[in-house]
Design a protein around this nucleic acid. Sequence first.
DNA 1: AATGAATGAGTATTCATTCAT
DNA 2: AATGAATGAATACTCATTCAT
Lengths: 211, 211, 211, 211
Amino acid sequence: MTAISNHKSGAGNKREQILLAAVEQFLENDFYKVTITEIAKQAEVGKGTVYEYFSSKEDLFKESFSFCADAYLQSFSKHFVDGSSVKKTMEDIITTHLELIKENRSKLNLLFNERPLNLQELQSWVIKRRQELLDGITVLIKKGIELDEIRSDIDVEMAGRLFLALNCIVVGGMVVLDDLDIEEKHLAGLLDLFWNGIGNLETLSQSKISQ
Amino acid sequence: MTAISNHKSGAGNKREQILLAAVEQFLENDFYKVTITEIAKQAEVGKGTVYEYFSSKEDLFKESFSFCADAYLQSFSKHFVDGSSVKKTMEDIITTHLELIKENRSKLNLLFNERPLNLQELQSWVIKRRQELLDGITVLIKKGIELDEIRSDIDVEMAGRLFLALNCIVVGGMVVLDDLDIEEKHLAGLLDLFWNGIGNLETLSQSKISQ
Amino acid sequence: MTAISNHKSGAGNKREQILLAAVEQFLENDFYKVTITEIAKQAEVGKGTVYEYFSSKEDLFKESFSFCADAYLQSFSKHFVDGSSVKKTMEDIITTHLELIKENRSKLNLLFNERPLNLQELQSWVIKRRQELLDGITVLIKKGIELDEIRSDIDVEMAGRLFLALNCIVVGGMVVLDDLDIEEKHLAGLLDLFWNGIGNLETLSQSKISQ
Amino acid sequence: MTAISNHKSGAGNKREQILLAAVEQFLENDFYKVTITEIAKQAEVGKGTVYEYFSSKEDLFKESFSFCADAYLQSFSKHFVDGSSVKKTMEDIITTHLELIKENRSKLNLLFNERPLNLQELQSWVIKRRQELLDGITVLIKKGIELDEIRSDIDVEMAGRLFLALNCIVVGGMVVLDDLDIEEKHLAGLLDLFWNGIGNLETLSQSKISQ
DNA sequence: AATGAATGAGTATTCATTCAT
DNA sequence: AATGAATGAATACTCATTCAT
């Protein structure tokens, strides 16, 4: 490897170093608490170097978010492959969630819980990326309906959102509270609720009628 | 009204002006983006006046949060009264939610979506207040179980969280996305999902077995 | 006493209350640390009332300083009366100093150690008042010379200053350090030094020649 | 000088510019009156640059104080060298004082006259540094006693303080007043007083007896 | 005369970003 | 390409002073 290509791969390295450092920071603290100086220090590069690869702090945030979103969507998509049931797929997704969290403190937190900063354009950009997640879920649910696994009379949009909310609950127990150390048994319970609802089966028929 | 009481209510007015301005600001922007200067300007008082009534920005945030929490819990508690079914109560709660949102741009957003700031004490304070919400729901769910409206084999904690997540979805459609203009029909769909689950009744028995 | 005269004497009281509170505050903290709010609170009057009697914080400082200076000069002048020796007078002055300090935490600290604030006019005013102290001492020293108690070949101005410096040393041990708990034995030693000098008597003649 | 060393000295320059500006400011005004903005302006650097080199205003004050203290102690220590008499040494010290003052508006003022701010830690820090000065003097006086130049029955601590007070008097004539333009003849007079005391030789013996 | 609610000028400090080397 | 010294805009908070009552 020549000095130049070495240099280039070094450059590639730098970008990655910075991005990984940024991701780590944005996962711990919110946008305003994170400083470029700290990211540079952790990435072991100069402060100016950060701007060599990212045009602004906002840009760096976006890229960090994307990095997490891609990682998530990827692990998400692998559950689509075979002919397994939709319920199983959802179970897998949510389980993978929990595993991701436990493994590497979860890149997911950023995806779901960072309040869309209203830095103008940044906000809508975050929402757009999140919509991608929702779209993926919607496809899955529609497939479930086709396969008769899922009731055909549901509000697909809402079901998708509810599923994402499920994941939010898993991710650090946030949404409303914080830090719930979600255990496996809770996971199963949550999915059961999502799948079967909260209602008592015996009184179900009446309920449906009353609606 | 006498001059004195007039004076008093005038003083109360300033405090209220500031608080309402703060609530409005904190609903739009996150903690760091909100400035005392802007709050003062919107409240049409001097910057110093803000500190006459609130000891710090954090304090003002807390009070804003409490203001919303109280408003919410109040409208929430009124649904507990009579002997109506739990399902109906939940329906009412979620409907009230939507109404609150539509009426006054929702004080609720703050309650559910402000990411607990990592300002040490403030963070745990927010979480504590949120726990109050969850406790209220848990009580409701337990009552539902007693009345045989709700299945007795569910994870109560998770069910409570899921219900709050439901509300989050309603509140501005946030949680994951943003700004969904939730309509009434969506509401009914969401509650239906919560109550009856997503699963197809016909395949339900098998699912339960497979679990 | 009528209600009116009562009111008037009440007003006089107010002024005094404020002044005494101010003196106490200025003795503890320096000019910038002292707040009108605190003075008003301690004087048990409204904030606005302070401005009824004193035109500004500077003015209040001046009056506080004057109050202390007058008290000091008065206790100082009482030592001039009889035909006692100048040395005895100085001893008395310095002893009185110490007593004043011990009694009421000394109004003297303010007189000697408050760095003349360079609030323009205030500065020169403080210096002027201090000059009065020096003038008093100078008179005393000249009297000592007349009475042959004090050498006639000394620099009177400097001797006066040195004597005031002595008192500074006593006042809280300040000047250079802080908080020396000056005891009586130190006092005697200090005066001895002032009166007899540091030089060894045996070598004194040579020293004088070498000069 | 290479580009690099040039750069380094350039960097050093900024720090020095700021420090010198700070010293100048702190000599004129007390801690609270001095503003970072003004220091930056005078040093011809940006406000942020000040914080590049000094962590806080307090830190900058400390460094300014230390700068003066070091300069003083250095010029002070050079008088200790040879076997010259203690009296001569003291004469030199006080003369050097005066020269320092005349030369560069005296960094000494800060050392002796800045009232120890009651900023908690800063206060005790200033006192500690001042104690160093006193210790130096005490050593000198003890040496004088050994050499029989100084009376062995004096209060060494007080003598040290008195000598420092002497210097205070010289430094801008402060202690009590301000701005005395001390001339050389005054200097000699002051030292004479310190060495020989104020007392009349003829009445000295009686005085000693009466004590 | 007495009050204290209201005010805004003033200040230390942080941090994203730039640019000369 | 890589750096980090330099910068200044931005912000929470304090407090002397005013003025309507």
